[in-house]
Design a binder for these strands. Structure first.
Lengths: 197, 197
DNA sequence: TCGTACATACCGACTGGTTAGTCTGGTGCC
DNA sequence: GGCACCAGACTAACCAGTCGGTATGTACGA
């Protein structure tokens, strides 16, 4: 019997993370017991506490994964040579698509942040802020160069758009009429139209 | 000793509700124990379970209060004789102001809905839907009469705007640079600009 | 090619603490 | 005397995390 896998081929830590993600999204962090997680992953508590320091650690891992992914994608779009308008549109649409494609992560992200331990919460907020500021810088660039209206503070614009991202996990259903890309295009349109001078 | 009041003049049920609201907003529903609530209200469990059937009931009361308030206000704006554009702007701005003025209720509303018992959750969703539809009807009216663009489905527009409402409790701080009314005006501006044909 | 030593990966019973809700009883008003 | 109002001890369930133990693999000297 190999060490880190069992049953199917995926390593135990990943199985635990996947089970935890699904259960946290379905029932919420506090309502999900460690026992449920290990049963869903087909292992026992011993395995979980071998790989993770605490239940809190598991939640933190989910956050780290999401944050890394989103930041990487934003950076890629922001660094391109396209005009600001395109960069904003692409970044705004992309975050919608990736959020919908990882709706479980998203609902955990926005619902369970305050259940992280204070220090981990602080850390997550700091990374989140980096993301926010990168996006804001894009908006500000557009405002300086006259492509976007200056009527609304860039900070507010970012919060406006991310509100809708935040909200996706509340209303979006995969079996609904719109594909992730269609929703993304519409939401990016709304943002860009709101920014027209 | 009078029946329903004690210590200060406010009746016990209201004291319980106020204490619960504050604690739910601060710590979340699951992390708040019934013991904490009764201590904050200056009574004991006997009193709480005399007036409320369960901890869940208490949460439901918070929802009922918020829903009633918001629906009343929306109806008032929607029923006016002003042009659609004004009605949408006023309704959109008003919900921002009342949300900020009751930020505790708002954060509970958006964070703890899924911890309600299934039937109460269903009930809340139904009332929420009524609200959504009333707002959507306003947008659709504007689209029919050519005041608003038809490019984005009205449903999506409503979700877009309510995403930003939803998000308010995450970022708005009373000691920040913007007053509730200023935030409301900006957010309403963004919506109206996004709706320009 | 054994044998010993050590590390990694995991099991599952157990512990100490917490929790929502119940129940018995008491008190003052009508 | 009855009823609304409330106190607070009690119960049954649950839960995160611990810990001693087992099984498997790897390194290495003789």
């Amino acid at each position: 019997m190999p060490r880190t896998t069992d049953g199917d081929g995926t390593p135990v830590p990943q199985r635990l993370l996947a089970a935890a993600t699904r259960l946290f999204a379905e029932q919420g962090y506090d309502r999900t017991s460690v026992q449920e997680i290990v049963e869903a992953a087909g292992v026992t508590k011993g395995a979980l506490y071998h790989y993770f320091g605490s239940k809190d650690d598991l939640l933190h891992e989910v956050y780290a994964r999401v944050l890394r992914l989103q930041q990487e994608r934003l950076d890629a779009f922001a660094d391109s040579d396209d005009p600001v308008e395109s960069r904003v549109r692409e970044a705004a649409a992309d975050v919608v698509v990736t959020t919908i494609e990882n709706l479980d992560d998203a609902s955990i992200f926005f619902r369970s942040m305050h259940q992280l331990s204070p220090e981990k919460n602080k850390q997550v907020r700091a990374e989140r802020r980096r993301y926010h500021e990168r996006f804001r810088a894009l908006i500000e660039e557009g405002q300086r160069t006259g492509v976007f209206t200056k009527e609304t503070p860039a900070d507010l614009v970012v919060d406006y758009h991310f509100g809708s991202i935040h909200h996706l996990s509340t209303w979006y259903r995969p079996d609904g009429p719109l594909s992730p890309q269609e929703v993304a295009d519409h939401l990016a349109d709304l943002l860009l139209r709101a920014l027209r001078p």
